[in-house]
Amino acid sequence: MPAMPPASSTPVQILLVEDSPDDADLMIEALKEGRLEVRINLVEDGEDALAFLRNEGAQQTAPRPDLVLLDLHLPRKNGFEVLAEMKKDVELRHIPVVILTSSDSEQAFLDAYNLHANCCVSKPVDQDEYALVVRKIEHFWLTVAQRVRRT
C-alpha cells in the first residue's frame, strides 16, 4: 500500500466535468473516500471546463488539475471537443484525462483514444460498482501513476 503523502503536501486537484448531478454526487462521494487529500472541482459543461483549465473569466484563480474526469455528453461543448482542445494545448496536454461515459458505441471509444484520451472507462449502471470504479481510477492515477508536478 502506498505511503501517505507528507502532511505539508498540497492537496490533489481533480477536475470533474459532469452535467448529471446524480453522477457527480456519486463520484464526489467515492473520491472523498480515498486516503489522499483531494479537492474536487466540479463543472457542468465543456465551456466551463476549458475556462477552468485556462483560468478564464470567473475561473482566474482556479488551480491546475492533476487529473481530469471527463464525461463525453456535455452541454455547450461536448467531451470530444474539450479533449481535443486540451490535447492540442501545450500548457494542458500533459494533464491526464480519464473519459467516463455510458452506453457509447465502440467508435466513441476509438475517437476518444485517437484524440489522446489517457484512458476510457465505461460507467457501470450499478451504483456500488460505479463507486468502486471511481475509487480505482483515483487510486491508480494518484498513487500508482506519476504526476507532473505543478509549477
Binding site: R93, H94, N118, V144, Q146, V148, R149
Partner: peptide
Amino acid sequence: SDDEKDVRRAYDGYANCYVT
C-alpha cells in the same frame, strides 16, 4: 526514471500513463 523532465516529456508526447 522518476525525473520530472521524463514524466513531462512522456505526457506531452501523449503517453497514456507513466509509472516509475
